[in-house]
Design a protein around this nucleic acid. Structure first.
Lengths: 211, 211
DNA sequence: TAGATTGTTAATCGATTAACAATC
DNA sequence: TAGATTGTTAATCGATTAACAATC
């Protein structure tokens, strides 16, 4: 929209750039041109130059891009180095796997709390945190002021939770539930992880190959 | 591209339509107009009519869309009713959660096999299936001819696995690893579930709100 | 029939690609 | 310097939105 605004098409591609650059860096490659990178990533050189240039002139004419530097820059853009406090809602099987197997620091988050309504779960320790009852949400948020919520609850619970979380200052949701946060809370930032959506699209694609 | 080709922008929206229609159906709503649905989903009525019309005239002038019917049609388009054989690669914590908590039938898949290289896991039962050693992959695929693979392995293992799976007739990948299948196997159908990508984008969005 | 709402064409907007002058 | 490759403008392509005639 306004100048300086970065389109979501560009943002969506950033983590992939970050991943490819990370690999190249690990392999000890020092520089790469937009056309070489384009070939690896199956994009056009033009698109890469356009994308990167939205954020500044990271390249150098006649040379290309310094991988180490570009990797750092993209990380910075994505906020990898920030430290956003996040809480986990729902500590069922999925919540536990997510909480214990992700290194949130690498994405710029710190998990500061975990909540569930199940008395069999409340009090247990997950990812080094004692699980609180969801009743404590208001109190906890007023004290710790988390800005992100990871929703690993059924969609029935998600609706009510979002109604509470938004006024409590939660700005962003990492949403594993099927509740459509964006349509009810258009100002919230939302990243959905809808397993079944992905599977349905895969089903479509498999059905419609070579058409 | 060619006429009859459905753009991926449209495909991406289909599961969301399906979800909203499912809710409306459950609520007992019988019909809906494109403008009512647009308001609920925060889309434009135009877009909804365009999207649906790619697949046929499901609506009726002066009336709108029959919810039950449209729901069924979109399900059919997505291949919800097909029965694609799928295998799970990697039965670690994530693989187990995915295998045991998804109702694959609802997305048109049947899980017919599970594989791991860890001898502590091989032989165990997951989602009703005995876990095989990955060494048996070739034999198994020749016998059962699965068309989809669910990759819940580290990216180091994913590369080699894809090299084996593609020649074995796997057409589609549901990829939880960070290995970039598409850039090495451009003809494979791929749906990525990259947890950390979503988190990085969320980080970006939180950092750049109200800009 | 009159009113409502689709299907569909045309207009607009945005994203991608191509081209090339700037410059390392 | 000459060659390479960026940054950036212009051209193209595709997706979204608007408009309206068709029709239930």
């Amino acid at each position: 929209m306004k100048n300086g605004h970065i389109s979501s098409s560009v943002i969506k591609r950033l983590p992939r750039y970050y991943r490819f650059l990370g690999h190249l860096k690990k392999q000890g490659v020092l520089r790469i041109s937009s056309s070489e990178l384009a070939e690896k990533m199956r994009l056009t050189a033009s698109q890469i130059r356009q994308d990167l240039n939205r954020f500044g002139g990271f390249g150098q004419q006649g040379y290309g891009y310094n991988i180490e530097l570009l990797y750092e820059q993209i990380g910075e853009i994505l906020g990898i180095n920030s430290d956003v406090k996040a809480i986990m809602l729902g500590v069922g099987k999925l919540g536990v796997v997510v909480a214990e197997n992700m290194d949130f620091k690498k994405q710029g988050f710190t998990l500061v709390g975990a909540f569930d309504i199940d008395q069999n779960v409340v009090g247990k320790t997950v990812a080094g945190l004692k699980v609180n009852h969801t009743d404590c949400l208001e109190e906890f948020c007023k004290e710790h002021k988390p800005k992100a919520a990871f929703l690993c609850v059924p969609s029935s619970a998600a609706e009510e939770l979002c109604e509470r979380l938004v006024p409590l200052g939660i700005k962003g949701f990492w949403n594993f539930s099927h509740y459509d946060i964006k349509s009810e809370h258009p100002n919230a930032e939302v990243e959905n992880v809808h397993f079944s959506d992905a599977l349905m699209r895969l089903s479509y694609k498999i059905k419609n190959t070579d058409k």
